[in-house]
Simulated assay, not measured.
Amino acid sequence: MADEKKDASGRWSLDSLPDLSGRTAVVTGANSGIGFVTAEALARAGARVVLAVRDEERGKAAAGRISGATEVRRLDLADLASVREFAAGWDGPLDLLINNAGVMMLPRQRTRDGFEMQFGTNHLGHFALTNLLLPHVTDRVVTVASGAHRWPGAAIHFDDLDFANGYNPQRAYAQSKLANLLFTLELQRRLTEAGSPVRAVAAHPGWAATNLQSHAGNPVARLLMQLGNRLFAQSDRAGALPTLYAAVEDVPGAAYVGPDGFAEMRGAPTLVGRTRAASDAGVARRLWDVSEELTGVRFSVGAGSVSGGGGSGRG
């Protein structure tokens, strides 16, 4: 896209977005936090923005606070039937797909299809949504990951993806965020192999003060994160910058964008690194194969050739 525009301090900001008139974007989880800021900024820059949200009333309230062209559509990433319904209702080109929605460190729960809630929502829901919409995507897919992929012990537990043999909310969240990066890596490989111009990129907000942390199941962890929000976190507006940068700047496929400050907790958006585990092409391919099996959704970039059969689902 256009050359970077920076604010008076020389840093990339919400005012750095180019003119997005004529472009269409879908932002999942756009009714609050980073998702709302992302949708608001894209709409202000001229894009038509679809707020893909689980609660339509909250989505409509959010859209009412945005100046620009918006639309609200229901999407529950914890329900593959809802994901298929959303994708089936899509018509026309889609320039930007922003996979932003997520849940964090919940007590043990399952999705409607029987998957562990964090893996099912953060990874499998977006995996299915992306592949079902991919024949419409013209520019890029941005998936919001997290520094949690660096947590000790973060791994894809192929022998127990649902943590049936001992649930740990932190390990389950770290697995889902590592999955986001591996998904981006393998999606880009497949797009390149298919000769598609679409780019798959990832971003993380650093430590941003949003309501995501307030939903942690452990009250002690919730209290510590709320305290951390007050002491260390940047605003949700600053936290959205890496996502927006990844969406509009000329970054390479499979790039990862995060804050440039200490420990990537805050700062201006820049290209950042990832762990060896998040760069493992073999694990990325295996995760993709497993995800296709679990969701029943296959990779396809050809218009009209989307596969969306029934997923396996587990009770």
Rank of each mutant, 00 (worst) to 15 (best):
G64K: 05
R65S: 11
R65M: 14
I66D: 15
S67D: 14
G68D: 01
G68W: 04
G68L: 04
T70W: 05
E71I: 12
R73M: 04
R73L: 09
R74E: 14
A78W: 00
D79T: 05
L80G: 05
L80K: 12
A81G: 14
R84W: 07
E85A: 15
F86C: 00
F86D: 01
A87W: 11
A87F: 04
A87P: 01
G89A: 10
G89Y: 13
W90L: 05
D91S: 15
G92W: 13
P93V: 01
P93L: 00
L94R: 01
L94P: 01
D95M: 03
D95Y: 03
L97P: 12
L97A: 11
I98G: 02
I98T: 07
I98Q: 02
N100Q: 10
A101R: 05
A101T: 08
G102S: 02
V103I: 15
M104I: 11
M104P: 01
M105E: 12
M105C: 11
L106C: 13
P107M: 06
Q109W: 06
Q109Y: 09
R110Q: 02
T111D: 04
R112V: 15
R112M: 05
R112G: 02
G114R: 00
F115L: 09
F115Y: 15
E116P: 00
E116G: 03
E116T: 05
M117K: 13
M117G: 00
Q118I: 01
F119E: 01
F119D: 03
T121L: 06
N122D: 15
N122A: 12
N122Y: 11
N122Q: 09
G125Q: 05
A128V: 09
A128Y: 10
A128I: 11
L129E: 10
L129K: 01
L129M: 10
T130F: 04
L133Q: 11
L133H: 07
L134M: 08
P135K: 11
H136I: 01
V137T: 08
V137F: 07
T138G: 02
R140G: 02
R140Y: 02
R140F: 03
R140P: 03
R140K: 07
R140D: 03
V141Y: 08
V141H: 05
V142A: 14
V142M: 10
T143K: 09
A145N: 12
A145P: 11
A145M: 14
S146Q: 09
G147M: 14
G147W: 02
H149N: 04
H149T: 14
R150H: 15
W151R: 13
P152Y: 08
G153R: 14
G153Y: 12
G153E: 14
G153S: 09
A155E: 15
I156L: 15
H157M: 06
F158Q: 04
D159F: 02
D159G: 07
L161Y: 13
L161W: 05
L161K: 12
